[in-house]
């Protein structure tokens, strides 16, 4: 008996993964449904979706980059205090004293830029495929919200190193808020926690960056994938879809 089979037959393995022996497709589908992670995926997809040209795997890329950002970001949080007195020095010591600090910071920075590109490209690809059409309209809307959240995540993170680049980029970015009609100055003060970028801004951006925005994003990504799974096997053909979009109401005579 092979080692793998012995592990799979063990009581402990069976208690964790409650899978039937994968003999038929039905068994494999059952295993799929009983897995917490796999249940975000449909059990079957059309063969066209396997091709690179269908999606260029940009949704997967966005997801992977988000994961990379969470892991590298949590590591950086151990060594960072969001106050003007500490922040810059913390970044310096992350780069020089912390084990793999420079590398992890690089991963976080470049993943963030790549994620903005990946999410935008994912959206363009979905547009050209026409995948926003009924019944997937609302999933497109969730996607647009996720794009905005990605930009906000990147922008709030931009301030945290508290160097000249961070300070002035955020000063320029938030100055636009003061042009909102009627409540411009109020909007700006809510964003900055004061008339200009300062210690209150740093705390606000930090809390948004590490808690509020990621929580909203995780929820919306789960919703986004769940709706994708639900719609995975829906009609592709225009004629079929016109029936699905406009249900025929039969007259009762």
């Amino acid at each position: 008996m092979r080692v793998v089979d012995r592990i799979k037959g063990s009581v402990a393995y069976r208690s964790i993964f409650r899978l039937p022996d994968a003999v038929t497709e039905r068994d494999r589908a059952a295993a799929h449904w009983s897995s917490f992670l796999l249940h975000l995926y449909p059990v079957k997809v059309r063969r066209r979706e396997l091709r690179f040209g269908y999606s260029a795997f940009l949704g997967v890329a966005s997801m992977v980059l988000f994961g990379s950002l969470i892991i590298s970001g949590i590591y950086l949080m151990f060594f960072y205090v969001p106050s003007p007195a500490n922040a810059y020095g913390n970044i310096q010591s992350i780069q020089t004293d912390v084990a793999f600090g420079q590398y992890i910071r690089n991963v976080h920075r470049w993943s963030a830029h790549l994620m903005v590109i990946a999410v935008a490209a994912h959206m363009a690809k979905v547009f050209y495929r026409g995948a926003y059409k009924p019944p997937k309209e609302f999933n497109w809307v969730i996607g647009v919200v996720l794009l905005v959240l990605t930009l906000l995540m990147s922008f709030t993170g931009y301030l945290l190193p508290w160097d000249q680049l961070a300070f002035w980029a955020v000063t320029v970015g938030t100055s636009m808020a003061s042009y909102v009609p009627l409540m411009g100055e109020t909007t700006k003060e809510i964003l900055l926690g004061g008339p200009s970028v300062g210690s209150a801004t740093l705390v606000r951006f930090y809390v948004l960056h590490v808690a509020v925005l990621p929580a909203i994003m995780v929820f919306l990504i789960a919703l986004h994938m769940w709706r994708w799974r639900k719609d995975a096997m829906l009609t592709v053909d225009a004629a079929e879809r016109s029936i699905a979009a406009e249900p025929v109401i039969e007259e009762v005579s």
Partner: peptide, 16 residues
């Protein structure tokens, strides 16, 4: 991501 992170360091200018 790994290759880019090994080749290029994230920028850090002087303090704000």
């Amino acid at each position: 991501v790994m290759v880019i992170s090994l080749l290029f360091d994230a920028p850090l200018r002087e303090i704000a």
